[in-house]
Amino acid sequence: MPPLNNQNLPYPDTMHPVVVHFVIAMVFFAYFCDITGYLSRNHRMFEVSWWNLVLASVAIFVAVIFGQIEAALAQPYPAAQPALNWHTINGWSISGILVAITAWRGIIRVRDPLKVPVVYLGAATFLMCLVCLQIYLGNLVDWVYGLHTVPVVEAMKQGLLK
């Protein structure tokens, strides 16, 4: 493994936030397109939603992999551990739910590309709530606990955070 930099990473900066923000944007936009398509009866919005979900379902696993690598390298101190644990559990849960909803959306698309059932929109709303929770947990890990920031890494190396 290459040497770690001053952020405890083998590469220049964290990759997880970059990839995960891409996923979040695609999931939010897919949801927006489904709601807009449902309310306006514009079936073209359903097609946009579908392709966003497909790409998000692939990209989320890249985000989870980088997240796991970066969490392992973070050496979290005890105060940060609960937020990081919940962020990890919720991230894996979202990846499974996102793939399941994408598969369900694919079946809906094949059966009737001009409609989306209300129950699907309810499940998509639940997914959006989980994504919002994940955003909150990610903000805790980054902005409150400062994992992979230079001052926190330095404090860890000096034994100031235990």
Rank of each mutant, 00 (worst) to 15 (best):
A59G: 14
N42V: 03
A74Y: 03
M45V: 00
V48R: 11
L55F: 12
R41W: 02
Q68M: 12
A74S: 15
W51P: 04
A72L: 09
A63C: 11
A74H: 09
S40Q: 15
L73M: 06
L53K: 10
H43A: 15
A74K: 08
A71K: 05
V48T: 11
A63E: 01
H43C: 04
G67N: 04
F66G: 04
W51Y: 15
V62W: 12
F61A: 01
R41S: 11
F46E: 00
F61M: 06
E47A: 14
I69K: 03
M45W: 09
V58R: 02
E47C: 10
V58L: 14
L55W: 10
A56H: 12
V62I: 14
A63H: 05
I60Q: 10
W50T: 01
E70N: 09
W50M: 08
L55A: 11
Q75I: 05
E70A: 06
L55T: 08
N52Q: 07
A72R: 12
N52P: 01
V54R: 05
F46N: 02
A59D: 04
N42G: 05
I65Y: 14
S57V: 03
R41K: 14
L55Q: 03
E47T: 12
A56K: 04
I69D: 01
Q68V: 14
V54T: 08
L73G: 09
L73P: 06
A56R: 03
Q75F: 07
E47N: 11
A63G: 15
L53Y: 15
A63Y: 04
W51M: 09
Q68W: 12
N52W: 13
L73H: 07
A71Y: 00
I65A: 15
V64L: 10
V54K: 08
H43R: 10
N42L: 06
A63R: 02
F46H: 07
W51I: 11
S49L: 06
L53P: 02
A74F: 00
L73Y: 09
L73T: 12
I65L: 14
F66H: 09
F61S: 03
A63S: 13
V62K: 06
H43I: 03
V64M: 13
I69V: 14
I60G: 05
S57A: 15
R44T: 08
N52D: 09
F46D: 00
V64A: 10
N42E: 13
R44F: 12
L53W: 15
E70D: 01
N52Y: 14
L73N: 07
L53R: 13
Q68D: 02
M45G: 01
A72Y: 11
V64N: 10
V62P: 01
R44Y: 14
E47Y: 06
A63F: 01
V48F: 15
W51C: 10
A56T: 09
I65T: 10
A63L: 00
S40P: 05
A74D: 04
V48C: 13
I65E: 11
H43W: 12
I60H: 08
Q75M: 13
W51Q: 14
S40A: 06
Q75G: 05
N42W: 15
